[in-house]
Design a protein around this nucleic acid. Structure first.
Lengths: 232, 232
DNA sequence: GAATCCAAGATTGTTCAACAATATTGACCA
DNA sequence: TGGTCAATATTGTTGAACAATCTTGGATTC
């Protein structure tokens, strides 16, 4: 195997490694939603053959991080209104379920509280990305209460798709700050053992977040179609 | 492309087609859990190249229908005790969640009742496979209440893994018959709008089913290790 | 006779080059 | 300006090749 351009050492499973590289780049916003991933340039850039790259593509398609259109190529997934609805359909089921029936040990509760504090600190210091990270971490930790790797994986995929949604919005307004307090009360309710109330509050929270996100997304799409009209 | 041995016509996307062929054969029990899927024989049998077959493998690995061991090959997944536990961790979350918060239209309820009746008829006529199918269909339909394609997909994967579990048990005893009645009451409760009770009953049902399945599976593993000892 | 070690053979992981099938582009024409 | 069609580019699939790894069989040693 030729060593790639950036000099990274060889890896046992090139396919999995390539997939993770692309995954990371997309999550970081380096590859923006909707952009095309042409095979030949990418092969050259990554120093692998077309076959291995294509194999990596199929795993990413399976994770719905990337969309493949037959004979047209693969593109970074760009979630729209319907995808956001699906995301919240999933979250409205598994997050409250985790709250109702998950295993709540003192250690886990401590972990949740630590995450919430991180979010509060990020809000106080005005760091929006850190706040977004902490919020996502909290909801991931909630799903972890289920103890199920499959549900955790599904939730990870959903959160990755959420990041894509945020990346596709040019103006990332202060979407997270007014949800920090709700997360605080959520964890407090869990600490108090009020699962029923926590689940209901969480469902209401998710309803609101979805509605707000859909408004932003609709405005964004309007903006784009306007630009397209102006440009085309 | 050479036409495959069985004469099936060409397809637009060979990779996806090969994956679905293998998926079907595994679900049908034609390829038993644990058996190795060697590349060269399969290529010849399916009439595709190694590269396409390997690409199909990666998608099946993503669906955890098949396990890949580096430099050793891919094998039909053979779920054990831990996998069964994980299956029921998932089911205990998403099925009751669907019951609690899913959308219950009269049409959907009619559909559920039709499936339950199918199960009852299968039990009366003594057809175990038909009964198993109906039971699986019912629980799939329950998850469909969520309206989420992702959750439906996850449930489909879980049910496929369940089939693998049954396939790996030499003696498939009457595992399903005494659960038909519980499904009847579940649908009755849904019709009456008693979601809370339905969800709790469902969770109890899943607990029992898991315990019973684990007993069978443990016995099966004991039997196998005994055979291995006798043979080796 | 049983255990260990090693080399030959077989299988998988990856790459390369080629061709067929399909999509995109741009020129040409009405 | 708008539409049609050929030239071009990209993707989908194949076959062969090679390196890396695993497996198998036999030879050696105790």
């Amino acid at each position: 195997m030729n060593t790639p351009a950036d000099g990274t050492a060889e890896h046992a499973h090139t396919t999995a490694w390539i997939a993770s590289v692309l995954r990371t780049r997309i999550a970081a916003g380096e590859l923006t939603p909707g952009s095309k991933l042409s095979e030949e340039p990418l092969c050259a850039a990554l120093g692998v053959s077309r076959n291995t790259l294509r194999q990596a593509f199929t795993t990413l398609v399976g994770e719905s991080i990337v969309t493949r259109i037959p004979n047209r190529g693969v593109f970074v997934a760009s979630p729209g209104v319907e995808e956001v609805r699906e995301i919240y359909r999933v979250r409205r089921m598994i997050e409250p379920a985790a709250v109702l029936w998950g295993e709540l040990t003192p250690q886990v509760l401590d972990g949740l509280e630590a995450i919430v504090q991180r979010a509060q600190q990020a809000r106080d210091s005005g760091s929006v990305p850190a706040m977004a990270d902490a919020n996502q971490a909290l909801h991931g930790a909630v799903v972890a209460l289920t103890g199920s790797a499959s549900l955790q994986e599904l939730m990870d995929r959903v959160l990755a798709e959420m990041r894509l949604v945020f990346h596709s919005m040019a103006s990332a307004p202060d979407f997270h700050s007014h949800y920090v307090d709700r997360n605080v009360t959520l964890v407090k309710q869990l600490r108090a053992g009020e699962r029923q109330e926590a689940a209901e509050g969480l469902r209401a929270y998710l309803d609101e977040a979805e509605a707000e996100l859909l408004v932003h997304l609709g405005a964004e799409q309007d903006r784009r179609s306007a630009m397209r009209q102006r440009a085309g």
